[in-house]
C-alpha cells in the first residue's frame, strides 16, 4: 500500500533512489523529444512541451536529491517472489486470452493466483470450497459479459483448430 494509508510506517532514505528516478525521467523526457522529431509540428507541439516540463521537473528533483536527504517512501516488507509471480501470471493470462480462450485461461489464471495468495495449508475441503467459489465467479462474469451485456469474449484459437 502507499504510505498514504500507512501513516506510522517508518520511512526509508530515498535520496539515492530519487537521483535514479530523476535520471530515468530525464531519459524519458529526452526520449520523447528525440522520438517526436519526425512528427508533424502541429502534432509535436504538445508532447514536446510536456517533455520539456518533465525535463525541468526532473532536473529540479535531481538538484534537490544532491542538496538534501529525503525520506519519502516506506520500508518495503513482504514476499518478493509472490509479487513477481503475481505479475507474471497476470501477464501470461493476458497473452494467452486469445490462444487458450477466455474460460480456459481464466480458470487456469484464478487457480494459480489462489495458490499464490494462500498462506496457510491446504485441506481437501478448503481446496474444493475455494475451487467451486472461483469457478462460480468465472461463470458469473462470463454470463454477465458474454450473454447479458453481449461483450464477445475469445473462444480460443487453440480449440478452434482442434
Amino acid at each position: 500500500m502507499s504510505n498514504q494509508t500507512q501513516p506510522n510506517v517508518p520511512q526509508r532514505d530515498t535520496t539515492r533512489s530519487d537521483r535514479l528516478l530523476a535520471l530515468t525521467m530525464l531519459a524519458i523526457g529526452f526520449g520523447a523529444i528525440w522520438f517526436g522529431r519526425d512528427i508533424s509540428p502541429m502534432a509535436r507541439v504538445f508532447p514536446t512541451t510536456m517533455a520539456v516540463v518533465l525535463l525541468v521537473l526532473s532536473a529540479l528533483l535531481l538538484c534537490k536529491a544532491f542538496i538534501r536527504r529525503s525520506h519519502e517512501a516506506p520500508h518495503e516488507t513482504g514476499s518478493v517472489p509472490r509479487r513477481l509471480l503475481l505479475v507474471a501470471v497476470i501477464l501470461v493470462w493476458g497473452f494467452t486470452l486469445n490462444w487458450l480462450g477466455f474460460i480456459a485461461s481464466s480458470v487456469a489464471g484464478v487457480a494459480v493466483l489462489a495458490l499464490i495468495g494462500h498462506f496457510q495449508g491446504w485441506t481437501p475441503r478448503r481446496a474444493l470450497t475455494y475451487g467451486l467459489a472461483l469457478l462460480a465467479t468465472v461463470a458469473f462474469f462470463y454470463l454477465l459479459f458474454d450473454v447479458l451485456l453481449d461483450v464477445p469474449l475469445p473462444a480460443g484459437t487453440l480449440w478452434q483448430r482442434l
Binding site: 503475481l86 493470462w93 484464478v110 493466483l113 489462489a114 495468495g117 475455494y130 465467479t137 462474469f141
Partner: peptide
C-alpha cells in the same frame, strides 16, 4: 486472500 486475489485479478 486466496479468493480475493484471483477474483480481483479476474
Amino acid at each position: 486472500k486466496a479468493l480475493l486475489v484471483p477474483a480481483i485479478a479476474f
